[in-house]
Amino acid sequence: MEGPVPFPQRGEEIVWIYEKKLQYPVKVSTCNPTLAKYLVEQYGGADGELAAALRYLNQRYTIPDKVIGLLTDIGTEEFAHLEMIATMIYKLTKDAKPQALKEAGLGEHYVQHDSALFYNNAAGVPFSATYFQAKGDPIADLYEDIAAEEKARATYQWIIDMSDDTDLNDSLRYLREREIVHSQRFREAVEILKDERDRQKIF
């Protein structure tokens, strides 16, 4: 099996692997910097992709072995989503003049950051580690993860409701669908951890 990009084989001396490609294409068809103001909620907001990635990749150390892999897979995928959100925000603001940013409600952002991206929420509140927890109790942590996925799904819905950009909404729908699948997998992780099949089955 040979893909278009030769992937490193086991034993090859590789320092770091990163595929420089978005998980799903991002196309923005309208110049609407106001959407960037809304999208930043998923960038540096409490239920955003950064909070999600950091939450799962931190909890993974102290969760039963059976579900570590799940947290690793989902946690790293959240960074892929973060890249997509960053791309959207960048595209929506890169050619906006100060006046246009001001009209989009991003005047304060411009004063602090020019059009640089920054980890804050849609209301301008900077990102905080208090947005997520690591209780150390597997059930408590997974229930938080399920809630986080449902909240992120809801945030995508509210942004889609506010957006008339069909191409952007296509990417947002993809991200919303991923939240649904992640929630499903966390729910299954709870089922795995509370499972009592070991006691009933004789092998």
Binding site: Q157, I160, D161, R173, I180, Q184
Partner: peptide
């Protein structure tokens, strides 16, 4: 599946603004 965001048909849930 790569376009829709899930391999499984049962999990696919298209969303659009319901107020529209």
């Amino acid at each position: 599946a790569l376009r829709k965001g899930t391999l499984w048909k049962v999990f696919y849930d298209y969303y659009d603004n319901p107020y529209k």
